[in-house]
Design a protein around this nucleic acid. Sequence first.
RNA 1: GCGCCCGUGGCUCAAUGGAUAGAGCAUCGGACUUCGGAUCCGACGGUUGGGGGUUCGAGUCCCUCCGGGCGCGCCA
Length: 613
Amino acid sequence: MSGDRENTTGSAWRGTTRSRRATSSSCTYDRVRITTAPARSGGTMEAIVERVLTQAMERLQAAGKVPAELRLPVVIERPKREEFGDFGCALPLALAKATRRNPVECGKELMAAIQAPEGLFEAVTFAPPGYLNFKVAPAAWFQRMKDVTTIPADGAGERVLLEFVSANPTGPLHVGHGRGAVLGDALARVMRAAGYAVETEYYVNDVGNQMAMMGLSLHCRGREVLGLSDGSDFPEKGYRGQYVRDVAAEFVATPAGKAACEQPYESIGARDDNACTHFAEERLLGVIQATLKAGGIHFDRWYVERTLHASGALAATVQRLLDQGHAYRDEAGAILFRMEGKADEDDRVMVRASGVPTYFAADIAYHDDKARRGFTRLINIWGADHHGYIPRMKASLEALGHDPACLQVLLVQMVTLTRGGEAVPMGKRSGEFVTLQEVLEEVGQDAVRFLFLLRRADAQFEFDLDLAKSQSMDNPVYYVQYGHARVASILRKAAGLGIAVPGWTDGMQDVLTLPEEMSLVKDLARFAGVVTSAARRCEPHHVAFYLMDLVKDFHGYYTRNKHTEKVISDDTVKTAARLFLVSRVQSVLAEGLALLGVSAPEEMRLTADDEPA
RNA sequence: GCGCCCGUGGCUCAAUGGAUAGAGCAUCGGACUUCGGAUCCGACGGUUGGGGGUUCGAGUCCCUCCGGGCGCGCCA
């Protein structure tokens, strides 16, 4: 288990000094985006408000009322209290602080400098001690309904390589891998929706001691099958899972496998490169791939470590570091990478005194290769137990002439499994663990994915198998999916009556007057911003929480009004407008669920008694 | 010992340094002859682990202590 680096979020760099720069530069980036593409059709309401305020600031600067060189991040937020309006901004407080003036004066000045497009705001108010609050006119909200599923291409120009799971082919995936897998897959989808060019990659770590131990384990089990061993010579650190016996049985059923097991392990080739390790890799990688497929996890590329050794890329990278003085040979003949005092770390071995390169050396060559392929960002999702590996990875990138900041490691915290309140032991070598495959079969792909995505990655996660299974009907994912199915049902009913779902027309806002309808319109308008924000922050869980919000409002709208203001009524104008609205809800639910890799069913039934015989 | 992550209602979890910390589950009390009752409404429930500090403003940043998890290999 310790050999894998499966698991999420920006926490890896959050605590460093670099993180502050990253935060403020993203604000700058937002301002650039808005000024360079002010007319972007998919711009979010937040972006529009932000632009209005940014321009107000620029106007004050042009008038000499604010220092021209002053740059303040314009942070638009949604106020917690409804009476404050749709958006709020504490810019007057920030301006007051920066200019050492009274926040009330700053607020009044800013308000006077605001030149919003006609009809955008219903009200702009100043609230002590220094907030500007904006209430957007209903008509402006309704204008967003034309394209609620259009996401601004925030990530345009970014080429991202997202590496995740990358578990050794030494056994089936466990639930911890599943968390990283689901996060990575969802993040790829979310970032692609926001315009990033994302490629996903699985690094197949098929070289080294772990693989050698796998081969030896297989060899021993094979000998047991053949009656050549009673198992007493099984290595202490070998892989003890039943799956090894299964693979061994298949192995010795082949002539080559039988022959390999009849000879001493030392005689069949390199310890990590022989008939046993090759067979294990092929079979176990197949198992891993089948599980990932069952979980809906897709990879664009499988990058095999052995190719780095075979091509000479690894040796060349080591030589380059030696030549440039970033590495040296010690008295024993080992080659070490110089940490140069960075992060208080010791120098790290790249090539052992025996001449065999370490995992670290291969990983350096791999990341060098990634960077050379022209990606602007390298995102790795690792299990939290690998956090100590980050400084040396960054240092090695820097030594090779790459910007270490392009590497972003998202750490996923451990998943602890419980069943009936008791911890389930996990450990690949002991063989006692619940596989991801089993959990997927027991709980279902949609529920597993949604559960994983319904929390931040940098918090530990207690996954109670009994709870996940027994409460499956109360599972949030079904609540969201049910909303989608419910709209589908309404649309089917309309279709049965010969009523088509219309496109948007301006008259619709005059009949969508229920408070719940206005709430839904605002919810829908928020979708694009949620997606771009989730992509920027590498936190797909925001999408899951948004969907919960949206569907809650929809269920409330439906239930509260189902006897008085039905979607489908005798009023053809209202019917058309409401069909449009609920169809938009359905689209956003479908789109949002797709971003998480969760299905959006047209119908859901508890019982099968109405199924055709 | 050193380093990283986490600590938020009974439980599981949210919350860009902003305004009176929010959901779900559970509990209790209600609604509706269903375009799908897998729904909805309400109530109860908090000194955000403790203590200092920075700030106009801290769940969020800094220090310290406590508690939980994980690292600190010529393993991967």
